[in-house]
């Protein structure tokens, strides 16, 4: 089983990196970008002997406990 965890900063939480990048792009002549955000993708590939139910449970735990911080992140889990 292979899962993708996508982690993005919640709306309303300041992301200085993306703000700076957007400002620098604008300064260099890039026009028309209203908002710039980024999403981190983590791919979790499980051993063959782990069944799908257990794999999804572990993937959700790792995503919610370590990969994302619920205070500032939204995350999604997809089967690849």
């Amino acid at each position: 089983m292979k899962y993708s965890v996508q982690v993005k900063i919640k709306d309303g939480v300041l992301d200085p990196e993306m703000e700076t990048l957007q400002r620098l792009l604008r300064r260099s002549g890039v026009k028309g970008i209203r908002q710039l955000t980024h999403t981190q993708q983590f791919v979790l590939e499980f051993d063959d002997q782990v069944d799908a139910t257990e794999a999804e449970r572990v993937a959700r735990t790792v995503a919610g406990d370590v990969l994302a911080n619920p205070e500032i992140h939204d995350w999604t889990l997809d089967v690849l």
Binding site: V13, P16, T20, E71, I72
Partner: peptide
């Protein structure tokens, strides 16, 4: 949580 400083 601690985020990157306001001015980065």
């Amino acid at each position: 949580v601690l985020l990157k400083n306001r001015d980065g």
